[in-house]
Amino acid sequence: MMSCRIVSLAFAGALAFTTVLGACGKKGDGNSESAGAQGTGDKCVSSGTKFEPASGVAIAASKTFERIKAASKVVVGVKADQPNLGYKDADGKRCGFDIEVAQLVASKLGVEPAKIEYKEIPSTNRETAIQGGEIDYYVGTYSITDQRKDKVGFAGPYFIAGQDLLVRKDEGSITGKDTLKGKKVCSATGSTPLQRVRKENLTDDANISEFKTYSECVSQLLDKKIDAVTTDDSILKGFAAQSPSKLKVVGQTFSTEKYGIGLPREDVAFRNAVDDIIENAAKDGTWKKIYDGTLGLSGSTATPPAVERY
């Protein structure tokens, strides 16, 4: 009798699981319908900037550029799980601030957007992918650090972010990093923001949870299993812009992350050329246009940072 009940329980569980999965899919569709006023939802929204490929581009003594020219395509490392930043929606469309920066660089190198081959590279494999020539350059919330400069080169920064907190809309008690005591915090496994929370003892160790992707953390946040997601504000704003009626970014950054475009370390000519592209985009207003149409949808403003050449 007992086992009979267990069997039926197991079946009920399996059924419920399928229902939950189904419901998730539906919720996404519902969100995208009201994209204009109620955030972008799961759908890709582009800033509408046109990227015309430049002609007659030449970069002297750049192995990377020669490779791009010979293949007449460019291989770009990106992320795919950061809404409005580096994202790929269910229809396979890619969009977001980083994606459009990647398209901008490609167009200025003479490659049209259709000829870009995107490769999703997890954070932990970025250096390996650049060093091994698997990708030509990488645009995806890649913070410039001295340690990384030993392995790869960085053009930029093209954006300055800082660690912030994403909470539920009705959350009142979390107003900054010093109000995290006793709260449950989530971030990506081993990520710098997570290691900072642990090192600065912002909350008890038992209250820290970590998942492979931020979307898993956001799902836990919506399920009320955790109280805050922490990482760069750029990433958090992208999620907040997806469902502004449920989530908000606290807006008190407690670190500075300079996002750069990762490229082969020894190819200085290529690095300088990409630096020029970023600088020009900041001057002619392209940067602002890209920002306003992607991350800017969250309501926050930003200005292009000064490029730091080295």
Partner: peptide, 18 residues
């Protein structure tokens, strides 16, 4: 991958530490 810091998570930590 499910929020338990065991040996499988070490690589992610150390990669982030460069």
């Amino acid at each position: 991958g499910f929020s338990v810091v065991e040996a499988g998570a070490i690589q992610a930590y150390l990669s982030e530490r460069g």
